[in-house]
């Protein structure tokens, strides 16, 4: 038997990377502060620097590849859409050039750059947080704050249900195709194909909740005891607390400097 694996649960499960091993709430605090700075700065230069900064943080956490893969695609898509919309439609006194119905103005371009960098920087906070934080660690941190363990169940079971239902949907769609139900064809045919896939899927899932409830009840799901955890987070060390304090003080200083 793999005792090394079993006994690894005796200690908090750390990765050895100081940034990844921060408490999930510390990470949340950091990304929120970054997002607020981006919003309050009202400057595209700040937002753009923050976007670059995320890559640094991701590299620090050793997740640069995973983060970049998701964020670059997303950032380019959302950023360019938001920029083009503003560049095309926002009127102003400094027209640059005109084509067809549209007049591109300096104001449109400026607003476009500012807004797209802002939104992309806020998106980055969310993407970074989800890249460097495991859902179960985050839920565990919330439980420590007093959230009932049913919240953890709901969130974590949602992830698994999405996988399970997705697999079943594929299965049903394949069998529908095999039985000759048109899943391509014209719009009406495709809408009609939705029902025989979704119907059995949803009904099966809803009726299975009864067995699930019984199974979880057998595992003492609603036992009155305060539950313990096999896999624990480490106690937040002093330096991490000071670090959070420092981050939050910098935010306050930034606000004072910016608005007073």
């Amino acid at each position: 038997m793999d005792y090394e694996f079993i006994y690894s649960f005796k200690k908090p499960q750390l990765t050895g990377n100081w940034f990844l091993d921060l408490n999930p709430l510390t990470k949340l605090n950091i990304v929120i502060v970054i997002a607020i700075i981006s919003i309050l700065s009202l400057s595209w230069q700040v937002s753009a620097s923050i976007i670059a900064f995320y890559f640094l943080l991701a590299a620090l956490a050793g997740c640069l590849k995973r983060f970049s893969k998701m964020y670059i695609k997303l950032g380019l898509l959302i950023g360019s859409l938001l920029f083009i919309m503003r560049a095309m439609f926002i009127p102003g006194d400094h027209p640059l050039f005109t084509f067809w119905l549209f007049t591109i103005t300096q104001e449109g371009i400026d607003k476009g750059i500012w807004f797209s960098t802002l939104v992309v920087s806020i998106c980055g906070a969310i993407v970074l947080f989800s890249t460097i934080t495991r859902a179960k660690d985050f839920m565990y941190a919330l439980e420590n704050l007093g959230a009932p363990h049913s919240t953890s169940y709901i969130i974590l079971a949602s992830f698994q249900s999405i996988i399970d239902l997705g697999d079943r949907a594929k299965l049903i769609m394949d069998s529908q195709k095999a039985r000759g139900i048109e899943t391509e064809g014209n719009l009406l045919q495709r809408i009609k194909a939705f029902i025989p896939v979704m119907g059995p899927l949803v009904l099966g899932a809803i009726t299975s909740t009864e067995e699930k409830a019984i199974a979880m009840e057998a595992r003492a799901f609603s036992a009155p005891e305060k539950n313990t955890h096999l896999s624990e987070l480490r106690k937040v060390p002093l330096w991490e607390k000071l670090f959070v304090l420092l981050v939050n003080i910098s935010l306050i200083l930034f606000i004072i400097w910016r608005f007073i």
Binding site: Y153, A157, R219, A220, N227, L230
Partner: peptide, 25 residues
């Protein structure tokens, strides 16, 4: 349906009931 769907190793799955009972680690 008897697998909880909230644990990612069998070891943790088996421990789930004990966690709910508040058994110490």
């Amino acid at each position: 349906t008897q697998i909880s769907g909230v644990k990612d190793t069998v070891l943790e799955e088996i421990a789930l009931g004990l966690e709910n009972l508040g058994i110490d680690k």
